[in-house]
């Protein structure tokens, strides 16, 4: 926990720093514009450059983080899954486990590859299109960026629906949260996380239904630890996305519309990235659970 909290808080610090930089440079540029009004356009361009230089660092890093996790996961799948499958087959108990579907292996590796090769580059493209639209409003790619975002959310929701097809609850309910509380919690997420809120709650439900059956294999404590670990990148991404949108909202009255709009767009794109990172979290979760299952079966066979 001592390591998770600073990891989650680091981006908050960076975004607060970005906020200070924007306020400071905003004030300096307002003064300069007042002194030299004839160069307003040039000064605006320089200000956007400065914002890109100083304030996009957390967004870049998040994108790179998710990209690197996806890449490593793909390598892991290629190297580990044949071994895991063979191990499970050799131990002979794979098909006896409740709610076990071998298709999940193939499917989760497919989603990781899809995320790495198509979804994350598409988010990068949306990010760049937003940046170009704001730096040079005459060459506006806002519709294209929106189209990419909507298409990505659609793709991710289809994948999540497919995930829920694969994962059927084996009648073992270990999720002890009261149904009413659970439902209101879902509503809270749906209403407060813009753009991807409902999709996020659906993915949580899917993960929950799988964890109900997986907990019979691993036990609740380990399962919760695994869930917390795999959800760290997603939580971090959502946090950064929120902070960017918050920054855009706070700066709107004082700054140029393009600057607050740029921050808002980055926030939106990061929300989409967060939902892609849920897919990666799913795949990572299954890998860990399957490894544990393999270890358990191996121990059982020896015993």
């Amino acid at each position: 926990m001592e390591e998770i909290i600073p990891t989650l808080l680091q981006p908050v610090k960076e975004v607060v720093q970005a906020f200070t930089y924007i306020c400071l440079f905003g004030f300096i540029f307002i003064c300069i514009e007042w002194l030299i009004p004839s160069s307003k356009k040039l000064l605006k361009l320089l200000f956007i450059y400065l914002i890109c230089f100083y304030c996009l660092e957390p967004a870049y890093r998040t994108l790179e983080l998710i990209q690197s996790i996806a890449a490593e996961l793909t390598t892991l799948f290629i190297g580990m899954y044949p071994l895991l499958t063979a191990g499970l087959a050799m131990s002979g108990g794979a098909l006896l486990v409740t709610a076990w579907n071998p298709g999940v292996i193939l499917f989760s590796s497919f989603t990781a590859v899809l995320a790495e090769k198509i979804l994350i580059p598409s988010i990068t493209a949306a990010f760049l299109f937003d940046l170009i639209s704001r730096i040079h409003p005459k060459t506006s790619f806002t519709k294209l960026a929106d189209l990419i975002r909507v298409a990505l959310v659609g793709t991710t929701s289809i994948i999540l629906v497919l995930y829920s097809f694969f994962l059927t609850v084996g009648g073992l309910i270990t999720w002890t949260v009261n149904g009413a509380v659970n439902e209101s919690f879902k509503r809270l997420i749906q209403n407060n996380i813009p753009f991807v809120g409902s999709l996020l709650t659906e993915s949580i439900s899917t993960l929950k239904s799988y964890s109900s059956s997986a907990s019979t294999i691993t036990g609740n404590a380990i399962l919760i630890s695994v869930l917390v670990i795999v959800s760290v990148p997603t939580i971090q991404t959502i946090l950064i996305a929120f902070l960017y949108r918050f920054l855009g909202a706070i700066l709107q009255p004082f700054m140029d519309a393009d600057i607050s709009g740029l921050l808002d767009d980055i926030g939106k794109t990061l929300f989409v990235l967060s939902i892609v990172s849920v897919l990666i979290a799913f795949a990572l979760f299954f890998t860990i659970i399957l490894t544990m299952l393999f270890a358990k079966l191996l121990v059982g066979m020896k015993g």
Binding site: Y49, F53, Y60, L63, F127, L128
Partner: peptide, 19 residues
Amino acid sequence: WVNHMKQFYEKFFSIMGLF
């Protein structure tokens, strides 16, 4: 300014590298 923003362009191109 373009000369000074080299770092930014490097990052920009590294993002392009994700494609």
